[in-house]
Nucleic acid binder design. Structure first.
Lengths: 223, 223
DNA sequence: AGCCATGATACTGCATCCATAATTATGAAT
DNA sequence: ATTCATAATTATGGATGCAGTATCATGGCT
């Protein structure tokens, strides 16, 4: 069957890419549980496709670190150990810090206006205590910074790292008080950007990320 | 044909992985030229395999950034623009700097002895003006640092970045005087490690990488 | 003479099929 | 009853086949 043919609006992505995206969504939703076996046949039947594009999609996900391919054994959703998280977050903090630094150097007044708009949404959703929308706006804020920083390779690495982190079932924004804390940190970052102080922006962003990891750690003990 | 079956010494890598590795080698050797089209059929015939594992290998290389997949058009070796290089190197410098920093914190005396040994080889090959061996020893030095730093994710990113950089046909070590300069920089890095000064080691490594990029830039103008 | 249309060619992308290896189930022996 | 050996089942990995589309060449038209 395979979606309606009318979906071919300007260069349809390859089937394996569509499949990869669907699988990512399911993995992030933890619908496919960590460490769980991925049944190629079942998925192929479910998607109404053959195993070929599915297997190609899995190769892609494997190089993204979302699944592990055990030769002759099959494919499993990656399990993140506490150590893994402790390795990824500092790198993420480093990269995001760099983005903030560069963004502070390059941001035009138009860029700053855009960031301010997004930040206003963060304030709104935090006030409403809406973690989902806050999360979404947060993503857009970081994405905007990446664009302003203007280093696509750096942005790519951050996106990849974010995918890995999303493997965790825990969501620090759900932690009591974390949402407000995150907002406060964002305020200081925006302030540093406004001051056009690259070092300060980088430093605060760096701390912001590490603060996120600490929140995650609290969740681990709390259950 | 497919290598001798006797090569199954303890968990043979999947065929697509072997193919990916062979392709990487050919790409780095510029045997497959930048921007060049990759003929799936011809390669499959040459390797004596079907197109299936070959295509899977290409998916992996694509997510490594070594090739680009144009839907319905085929696969092409990635072309690095000057801008791409200017985006990758600063990130590389950032990551390698971090590795050096962490390594300075964690290195035991045994680790330091190992680094000293490798550095001695660098000195030797630099004296002999042997760029190939210098390059190889240089790789081992950086690999050793990564291991000492103990962050596998960080190491992974560096390895990936290094692959991208290797796409360039230019080799800065061939530049007159660069080999000696690189050696001198290595000396200062080792010195910082010996002093167990993380900040200094990180800073010097960072500069070392940027210095490498500058050398590459000179090569660009020199031809 | 140059340009556009039409047809031939060739390659990509997906499906299907097959061989091999791993896992599980069954049964026998200790 | 437990354990080990053996057979059946199932899934992975690779090969082959086929449909759809992009590219290239040839020929007609302006």
């Amino acid at each position: 069957m395979n979606a309606r043919p009318s979906s071919k609006i300007l260069a349809a992505p390859a089937l394996y890419e569509q499949v990869a995206e669907r699988l990512r969504t399911r993995i992030f939703a933890h619908e496919l549980p960590q460490g769980g076996w991925i049944d190629e046949q079942a998925l192929a039947v479910e998607y109404g496709i053959s195993r070929t594009p599915l297997r190609e999609a899995l190769k892609v996900l494997a190089s993204e670190g979302l699944v592990v391919l055990k030769p002759r054994r099959g494919c499993y959703v990656t399990e993140l150990s506490e150590q893994d998280i402790d390795e990824v977050f500092p790198v993420m903090a480093l990269l995001e810090g760099r983005v903030a630094e560069e963004a502070a150097r390059r941001a035009t007044s138009a860029d700053f206006a855009r960031l301010t708009t997004i930040h206003a949404e963060l304030e709104k959703h935090a006030a409403a205590n809406n973690a989902d929308r806050f999360f979404e706006a947060n993503q857009r804020f970081h994405a905007a910074l990446q664009e302003i920083a203007g280093n696509r390779y750096l942005a790519q690495l951050i996106d990849d790292a974010r995918k890995v982190i999303k493997l965790t079932r825990r969501d620090s924004l759900r932690l009591e008080g974390r949402l407000k804390q995150s907002l406060a940190e964002h305020r200081t970052i925006l302030e540093a950007l406004r001051l056009k102080d690259p070092a300060l922006a980088g430093q605060r962003m760096h701390e912001h990320l590490l603060s996120g990891r600490a929140a995650l750690a609290k969740l681990a003990t709390a259950g």
